[in-house]
């Protein structure tokens, strides 16, 4: 099982911006513990949802050749609770992208009302300054993630393994 916190993309402009939605449901087990008397979507998972929206945007910008890892939460502010039945919309845009890293700016909407900002930084980890080596295969962008983009972009050519998964 992959840890996926967005349901689908509704807009995708390569190299620039992306919008994904997440429908929050009481069928999700974590809400029963967070909390039993007042189920509310944890903001930490909203950060993950934005990281996936923005991370896929950043990955696609380099044709999924880079391993894109969340490196920094520059800013995360969400001003209203999100509860079962609500729809979250993550709107992400690339602010800067270089060989080593990318920074993104994100807006969070609840049922189309702006409720927060989540700004992130991603590292292209094969280009890290410490020279640490990572496995050849792109373990970040596997099939399930890429299938979210069906209908928006062509089959990515970057990660071979992902490409196979895409064809299934």
């Amino acid at each position: 099982m992959r840890w996926i916190w967005i349901d689908k993309f509704v807009e995708f402009t390569p190299g620039k911006s992306a919008v994904a939605i997440k429908n929050v449901s009481l069928a999700e087990e974590h809400l029963h513990d967070h909390w039993e008397d007042y189920p509310v979507m944890p903001v930490s998972l909203m950060i993950e949802g934005m990281a996936q929206t923005a991370g896929i945007l950043v990955g696609q910008a380099r044709d999924f050749k880079e391993k894109v890892i969340l490196a920094k939460i520059s800013k995360a502010q969400v001003s209203e609770p999100v509860v079962p039945g609500d729809q979250i919309k993550y709107q992400a845009e690339i602010v800067t992208i270089t060989d080593q890293a990318a920074s993104t700016h994100g807006s969070v909407f609840k049922n189309d009302k702006l409720i927060g900002t989540i700004d992130l930084m991603f590292s292209h980890i094969d280009k890290n300054l410490a020279g640490v080596k990572f496995p050849e295969e792109n373990f970040v962008f596997t099939g399930q993630f890429l299938r979210l983009l069906a209908g928006f972009i062509e089959t990515p050519s970057g990660a071979d393994q992902s490409k196979e998964a895409w064809k299934q």
Binding site: A71, K72, T96, D99, Q100, A101, S103, M121, S123, A130
Partner: peptide, 22 residues
Amino acid sequence: ESIDFLDIVFRLEKAFDIKIPP
């Protein structure tokens, strides 16, 4: 920390409209 140095570089480029090579 290390990632902050890249963040600072990105922000300086925007703030001063300059290009900072790695």
